[in-house]
Structures are given as structure tokens and as C-alpha cells.
């Protein structure tokens, strides 16, 4: 069936509108990060930086104070030391997120395969427990979790965060992977096991190569969850050596002395990794989300 020209044009217009709604907020943050504070407060502001300047980024990475701050155009010349720790926060976030991905890939895969293929008492209870626990809101459990981490003597450490995030991502991982493993044909595994492979060998040599897309999806989910998480990081970390990016930029953004251009730098730096990941792993993320919510 052919669509009329007019209908196609209208759909394209809607598509462009959607792209603008998604992208303009990001582009405004990018534009603001390349401007001076003074230009930002012009009414109306310059939509594109004029001229663009990397001085705000330079300050974050090298500590060189932007020239614009010597011009006292505003009542205060706000600048904050807090912005200087962002590069460390980025490293912390990546370290924590990649560790959680590793935990999920190893423990999550092993457990999911057992859930998908083994038969034993209590497995349905265990599976339901795992599924049900995945959606508890952070605020409802944040204080007791703070106490657990304190009891383990892991306050203000990245390991503490890795433990919490693993506990909150593994249920989702197991859900997605169990469904995924179930969808793979059993014949080859069974043939391998008749030939003397044990369950673990079958998993390693036969199933894992087939399950690569599922593994990519749960890797991406655990990364995004850990990288984006805010409440637990806010509660359990206190020093630069373990604070993650969301905690740092939240602190900067509610600091009345922080420059808005530096806040914009913080936004841009914080969204780079998840945006890159979302674009590269798009297919896996989409199919994983759909699988986890039921293939309706």
C-alpha cells in the first residue's frame, strides 16, 4: 500500500520534531558548556556559543581558571573546585560499572543456565524471589543498605558500590538470560552431554557462543544501571576516591556557588559513556528490554 505524498511529509515532520525534542536539551547543555557565564545570562541567550571556547573543559581537566571569570560581569564570579574532581568521578564510575558487568556476566550466566536447564526442589521459589526483588525502590531500602555496607566496613569504597549494584542488577540479568537460554535449542547441549560433557562444559563450549546477543544485552543493562545509579552512591560514598559521576554532578548542581557553564560541562561529561553505549548496543538493549517485559 502506498502512502500519499502528503502523509509521508507529515510523518517526516513528526520525525524531525521527535528528533528535536530528544536532541535539543542535549545540544543546549553542550552549547552552554562552550560559553562563558556572562553570555549564558544574556536575554535571550546566544543559542550557539559565540565564539565557542574550551576553557570550561580546560579548567575541569587542568585547573586553569577561564579568562572569563576575571571579568566581573555578574555579582559573583562563581567557580567551584568541585568541578575539578569530575575526571576522577568518571574513572570511578567506569571502574564500578565495568566490575558490575563482570560480576553479572560470570555469576549471572552460571545461575541463569542452572535455572533454565536444571530441575531441583525450590527452583521456582528461588526464581520468583530473584524476580520479585529486582524492582524494590532505592529509597525504601537505602538506609538499611547503608547499614549493611557499614557493617561490612565498606563505606566509601567502590567495592561496596559494586556489591550493591550487583545485588540489584543480577535479578534482571537472570530474568533476561534464563528466558534467553530457554529459547536456545537443547539438542546440541544434550548431544554434547551424552558425549561426556558436564553441565559446565556444555555451557562454556556450546551455549555461550550462541548466547552472545543475550550477554551483550545484560552487559549493557548492568553497565547503564551502575553508571546511572544515584541514591546508593549518595548514601554510601563520601570522598572523591569513591564518589561516582552522578553524585558529583548532583553536588555541583545544587551548590549555589557553582558556575552554570561548569554544571553544563558536568552534564556533557556524564552522558558521553551511556550515549556511546546506547548507540553501539542499541539492538541488544532493545531486544533485551522487550524480552524482559514479556514478548508481547
Amino acid at each position: 500500500m502506498k502512502r500519499s505524498r502528503l502523509a509521508t511529509a507529515a510523518l517526516i515532520a513528526c520525525g524531525v520534531l521527535l528528533a528535536l525534542v530528544i536532541l535539543l536539551p542535549f545540544l543546549w547543555a553542550l552549547s552552554a558548556s562552550l560559553q562563558t557565564e556572562l553570555a549564558l545570562f544574556r536575554r535571550p541567550p546566544d543559542w550557539t556559543p559565540n565564539p565557542p571556547s574550551l576553557e570550561n573543559y580546560l579548567y575541569v581537566f587542568t585547573g586553569q581558571v577561564p579568562n572569563a571569570y576575571n571579568v566581573r560581569g555578574l555579582l559573583r564570579s562563581p567557580i567551584t573546585q568541585e568541578a575539578r574532581v569530575l575526571p576522577i568521578g568518571l574513572m570511578n564510575s567506569l571502574e564500578v560499572a565495568l566490575s558490575v558487568v563482570t560480576v553479572n556476566l560470570v555469576l549471572g550466566t552460571l545461575a541463569s543456565y542452572t535455572f533454565a536447564r536444571e530441575r531441583f526442589r525450590g527452583r521456582e521459589t528461588a526464581y520468583l524471589f530473584i524476580l520479585g526483588s529486582r524492582l524494590l525502590p532505592a529509597m525504601a531500602v537505602a538506609i538499611p543498605i547503608f547499614l549493611i555496607i557499614k557493617a561490612l566496613d565498606l563505606l566509601d569504597t567502590k567495592i561496596g558500590l559494586v556489591l550493591i549494584y550487583s545485588a540489584f542488577t543480577l535479578p534482571f540479568t537472570i530474568w533476561v538470560l534464563t528466558l534467553y537460554f530457554r529459547s536456545l535449542p537443547k539438542d546440541i547441549e544434550e548431544a554434547a552431554m551424552v558425549d561426556g560433557c558436564n553441565r559446565f562444559d556444555a555451557l562454556r563450549h556450546v551455549v555461550l557462543p550462541l548466547a552472545a546477543p543475550g550477554l551483550a544485552a545484560i552487559g549493557a543493562f548492568s553497565f547503564l544501571f551502575s553508571y546511572d545509579e544515584f541514591v546508593f552512591a549518595l548514601f554510601t560514598t563520601s570522598s572523591t576516591s569513591s564518589k561516582t559521576v552522578p553524585v558529583m554532578i548532583a553536588a555541583i548542581s545544587v551548590n549555589p556557588d557553582a558556575s552554570y557553564t561548569l554544571i553544563a560541562v558536568g552534564i556533557v561529561l556524564s552522558v558521553l559513556a551511556p550515549i556511546a553505549l546506547a548507540l553501539v548496543f542499541r539492538r541488544f538493549i532493545t531486544s533485551g528490554l522487550v524480552a524482559s517485559m514479556g514478548r508481547s
Binding site: W28, A29, A250, T286
Partner: peptide
């Protein structure tokens, strides 16, 4: 577009909040 649509969801909620603050 199908790729772009993931972006607001993929970034930290805190970043989304601060973007809207700006």
C-alpha cells in the same frame, strides 16, 4: 530515530534532571 529514542533513557537520571534545570 529508533537509535536516538534510547538516549534520554540511557543517561543518568541526575543528568537528565540537571539538563532540565538548565
Amino acid at each position: 530515530l529508533r537509535a536516538l529514542v534510547l538516549l534520554p533513557w540511557a543517561i543518568p537520571l541526575v543528568s537528565a534532571g540537571i539538563i532540565w534545570r538548565l
